[in-house]
Design a protein around this nucleic acid. Sequence first.
DNA 1: CGTGTTGTTGAAAACAGTCAAATTCGGTGG
DNA 2: CCACCGAATTTGACTGTTTTCAACAACACG
Lengths: 248, 248
Amino acid sequence: MCAMNDTSRLKSETFKVACSSCNLRELCLPVGLARPDLDRLDALVATRRTVSRGDTLFRAGDEFQSLYAVRTGFFKTCVSSEDGRDQVTGFQMAGELLGLDGISNDRHSCDAVALEDSQVCVIPYSQLEDLSREFTDLQHQFHKIMSREIVRDHGVMLLLGSMRAEERLAAFLMNLTQRLQARGFSASSLILRMTREEIGSYLGLKLETVSRTFSKFQDEGLLEVKQRHIRILDQAGLQQLINGSTGC
Amino acid sequence: MCAMNDTSRLKSETFKVACSSCNLRELCLPVGLARPDLDRLDALVATRRTVSRGDTLFRAGDEFQSLYAVRTGFFKTCVSSEDGRDQVTGFQMAGELLGLDGISNDRHSCDAVALEDSQVCVIPYSQLEDLSREFTDLQHQFHKIMSREIVRDHGVMLLLGSMRAEERLAAFLMNLTQRLQARGFSASSLILRMTREEIGSYLGLKLETVSRTFSKFQDEGLLEVKQRHIRILDQAGLQQLINGSTGC
DNA sequence: CGTGTTGTTGAAAACAGTCAAATTCGGTGG
DNA sequence: CCACCGAATTTGACTGTTTTCAACAACACG
């Protein structure tokens, strides 16, 4: 129902939210680009797309044509195996790129699902390739973003491969708050956009374990947990959980 | 001691093993490139480097300058956290690329260690960027390789997040044999280049669990295990382990 | 103001981890 | 050539964490 209303809003924003004047430009694809590059990028990123909560931006198997930069809202990406196992591979917020997995095959290999009503900038991939042959800085920036995704994934492997439930949840919360803080939100208070099950899938835990661990953190005075409203009471304590337990 | 001897061998091979005539070209960076692109790539990949078993090709924190294509031998990559946790993030064999993590920061974020005496082709990154602005196919191929790495990482997350010990080891073995087979080796018999501990780190398990699981597979007639010599007796059985257990 | 979804909690079971000891293997030096 | 050494592997017994199953509570939505 808001898709209709949004059409006009979208149109009016098309000018306003060009990359060059987007308040996400320091977090998104345009990082570090100079004026001429930026102007060309503005031309490239002409269309936007609204995705309602619960809808998919793309699905595994869909033909790959574009990358998407989250403008507003919140996404998860999940892979699944033939036998029905599935795994949340990441949560994406404003300024983060979706769809890099699709380049390998010309097909997406994961689902991207909006966890709240969201808006993305559509970046036609073949045009991005064209443009990045012309502008060295854009090329370099794009490569950095892909590489950063690889490094991020390695961090998740470290988490999944070597941390216990409490450490995983603590690391997850610290990561979320850091990213929210970089976007101007509070460092100590947040609203989770995902269910316990989705957190569990991401962290390689069952939802009950996630719930129990939240409760434990609350009992220990690290957090205040009211369903999806989280207040961080002892950031240092959480950090210590991540670092401390192995090394004594 | 063999570094000295290798110098002459290296020199004599410099001509012979140009990408255009390399028997790995169907697995490596040159996949799908036409003649002119290939000739330029030959010029780019001029130097090689020998890495003895146990030595590092690069370490986390090292300045990033080049990518490396494995020519012969076998590597592992590991990340480690400040507090001393570490995690093997992958094993690389002939034709596979090392160092993509370094692009994000101009520093490597993991260690690459040779698990046997190895040789890599050195691909100076800034030159690769230059060349891939000129040759669309090379640019595209490079992007595909990075994207493929992201997809691979998502697969590892699925493994770490949703599989039990037996399933992980079965998946690991199937993956190894597939890759070995693509390189002309037997599909049913292999020699592991890594220790139980390294397998365990990759799979998020302790070395004892890896060892026990090997023994269990042997008892069940799936494998013949003699230290690092593995013979696969029941490929279908392994495959079933990966697919079957959840879905009944 | 119900109804279905999401979240919490408890008890028991399954799984992997820990600690410890024994064994095998590859390589080195006598 | 053989004996020995250290590293890697195997195996056993036990412990601890996480999962499973189940019931219940809280919340969001229509």
